[in-house]
Design a protein around this nucleic acid. Structure first.
Lengths: 338, 338
DNA sequence: GTGAAAGCGCTAACAG
DNA sequence: CTGTTAGCGCTTTCAC
């Protein structure tokens, strides 16, 4: 790689052995202050940068972690990655970013590549992690919005308090007088989404509603297009008769909004709508959309903190870290449905 | 790293030398079909994955490239990264993602880290690349939206036809009858932005306007907050007297929109507005915003294609690849200003 | 406090 | 067609 200078060159110039230079670089002690200074000066003068690849080969550990994200064009995920990258970089780690497009095959391939690159740990954002146990085993891993089914090696989960989130979202709709609330969520059993569902049910039941009042529509993909199409389908076949929708992510809410308004429904007068994540488009949307705010900065910080602690082999006290959420009320739930 | 099996283990099991295994893995020829089959079977059976770090140390080349982006939470950049990652991954490259927050210090640090990680090339999105010549030298680099001032080693630029973009945006405003058009852009001399400015001037002059009709406001940072604050400042001190604004990026346009509407200005009746990039928030915004569409998929594909060609030492015929843009007319320029 | 030497997993001459 | 060997740049015993 480039005409870069190595530890050997430094040692030669300094008139010491490479072992000594290595010790000095890593501050491992067992060298005199005098040699230290001499060597450090030469290092600076030559603008030496350590070769992490060689170091990685020797130590069997690269200082880089892989981040697997279902959709890197989604602002919510990237705000999370932003925080993670920032905190990880501070600790000297580089991050590989992998987009899976919510596709298990892609995911498998990419995790495989990560393994080849000897990443020292993995961060998994609400993904499938289907049959990856083998590849992941022994690799410190933090999951976001997803508690793996089987116990893996060293892992931990960080997520929002999704039950509370689902509860708050549904409660908001109920408080607006909605009686027929549709939940739109993912077909996949991602724990974060399952919990939002749980919160929805909890709010319904508390309000004295019954099992018959639970209405759910499942989506194959968690994105705008899928939500829009499903909504259009329901509207066109006349199977839509709700006065409130809780969409488990903001892009789903936007998809619903688009389909509804295109067909002449007014929001919030005819249908009230709540999203989840608090990405900026909900604030700027034609009718600003009420949503559940996830504290991405807090989440990102906790993810890195947990990851480091697992890597240091420290005992991780909690397997699941919960971060609080709060409701952001906007136009889409303004007014009272009677 | 993990209990992974090595080429040595494979060779032992197959009863051949490690050199032969290496040749087979890399399809370098000079082995019989028979041994190939035997070795491949063992590789599969043991679920062997090559150690890229060792390979990288030996060959002095890691198959991973660094991507430097000013703001990873911006959908435009990430759509670009999405395409780049996809295409690069197909070719067996992994990507490091670095966020600079438009901060030169951050940028320096991160490029430095990339060098330590022995990335085989760099992709630079509209960044500063101030005094990085040293670090970058000899590293194949593709710039997006930025033509470096000084000639570096092996580089190339991919960008939208920004002059045309600036022209189309301004032309749209002129066609709506605007006479007093403000350009909002970056203080930094990023070539992509300088060219949008050029297009703006070109449209103005063609329409018979003069130097006195050129009005520009420069921003220190290229984001929503900066645009919003600057707009508020102008509005509050009464120095705003325009009937049209061309904001050189969508988030700037959204910032202007917010400030203007908060103060009672109507868009498009009082002020017409055009953005740049075509990120989704412009389509969903209260008043959908006219913008210039950049073909990110095309750009991403060209970036990877150029990068690979530079790495293969092939002659790069053009130093600057231009990708066409087009106008997406929306509400914010509807109607005629008389 | 310092140095010699082994070796991480792999590739690439070179010899056969 | 196949094997032997010498490192890539670095860390880490183990002597001195």
């Amino acid at each position: 790689m480039k005409n870069s200078i190595s530890i050997k060159d430094i040692s030669k110039q300094a008139g010491v052995s490479i072992a000594t230079v290595s010790r000095i670089i890593n501050k491992n002690g067992r060298y005199s202050e005098e040699t230290e200074k001499r060597v450090m000066d030469i290092i600076k003068a030559n603008n030496y940068v350590p070769n992490m690849v060689a170091k990685g080969l020797r130590t069997q550990k690269m200082k880089n972690v892989g981040i697997i994200v279902p959709d890197i064009t989604n602002e919510f995920f990237m705000k999370l990655v932003y925080e993670i990258e920032k905190n990880l970089f501070k600790e000297g780690y580089e991050t590989f970013l992998c987009n899976t497009d919510e596709d298990e095959e892609q995911e498998r391939k990419r995790v495989h590549m990560m393994a080849m690159q000897n990443v020292c740990s993995l961060i998994y954002v609400s993904g499938g992690v289907s049959d990856l146990q083998d590849a992941i085993r022994d690799l410190p891993t933090v999951f976001i919005d997803r508690v793996p089914d089987e116990a893996l090696g060293n892992y931990c989960t960080v997520e929002s308090d999704n039950i509370q989130g689902g509860y708050l979202a549904t409660k908001e709709l109920l408080d607006c007088g909605c009686h027929n609330i549709l939940l739109m969520t993912s077909r996949k059993k991602i724990s974060g989404y399952v919990e939002r569902f749980e919160g929805y049910v909890k709010a319904l039941l508390r309000e004295g509603l019954e099992a018959a009042d639970i209405h759910v529509v499942y989506l194959e993909q968690l994105n705008y297009d899928a939500a829009y199409k499903e909504m259009v389908r329901m509207l066109d076949e006349g199977s839509f008769s709700y006065d409130g929708i809780f969409a488990t992510s903001d892009w789903l809410a936007i998809g619903c909004y688009k389909a509804l308004t295109e067909r002449g429904y007014r929001i919030p007068q005819d249908v009230k709508l709540v999203g989840y994540d608090d990405i900026s488009v909900t604030a700027f949307n034609g009718v600003p959309i009420t949503t559940i705010h996830q504290q991405v900065d807090e989440m990102g910080a906790r993810v890195v903190e947990q990851l480091l602690s697992i890597m240091r082999q420290e005992k991780v006290e909690q397997d699941v870290i919960k971060v609080p959420v709060y409701l952001v009320p906007r136009e889409s739930t303004r007014g009272k449905t009677e």
